[in-house]
Amino acid sequence: MRTRSWVLGACGALVVAAGGAGPAGAVSEPEADLALHGSAVMTGDRVEVSLTPRNGGPAATPDASVLLRWSVPLAEAQQLPRGCARTDERTVVCGIGALAVDALGERLTVAVRLKERPAEVTLEVDTAWLGGAVDRDRTNDRLKVLVLDTGDPYAF
Rank of each mutant, 00 (worst) to 15 (best):
W70P: 02
V101R: 14
G22R: 05
W6D: 11
D137L: 11
P118L: 09
R46Y: 03
A21G: 14
H37F: 10
V92Q: 00
G105K: 00
V66I: 12
V121N: 03
G97E: 05
R69T: 15
T52Q: 12
A59R: 00
D137F: 13
R136S: 12
R90F: 06
T87D: 11
V134W: 12
G95R: 10
R107K: 10
L123F: 05
V92Y: 05
D102S: 10
L143I: 03
V145E: 04
D33G: 15
D149N: 15
D63C: 03
T139Y: 09
R90E: 14
T61S: 07
D102Y: 06
W6K: 09
R136E: 13
V147L: 04
G105M: 05
V101W: 09
L67K: 05
C94E: 01
A155G: 04
M1H: 08
K115S: 15
R142M: 05
W70N: 01
A98H: 01
R113Y: 04
K144F: 09
D88W: 13
L8Y: 12
P30E: 06
A119C: 02
P118R: 04
R69Q: 15
A75C: 07
F156Q: 06
G56E: 09
R86H: 10
T91M: 10
A128V: 05
E31V: 14
P62Q: 08
T61M: 10
P81R: 04
M1W: 08
G105D: 06
T127M: 07
G151L: 06
P58K: 04
V134L: 09
G57A: 13
A18R: 07
K144M: 07
L123P: 00
L108P: 05
D102R: 11
E31G: 06
G95H: 13
V66T: 04
H37G: 05
P58W: 11
E124Y: 04
G22S: 10
M1P: 04
N140K: 04
V15G: 10
Q79S: 14
A13C: 12
T87E: 15
G95L: 03
A128I: 00
V145N: 01
V15I: 15
L51A: 07
A98G: 02
L74F: 13
G151Y: 03
T43C: 04
D152I: 00
N55P: 00
W70F: 15
L123Q: 07
E106L: 12
G44N: 11
P62T: 00
L108I: 08
R86A: 13
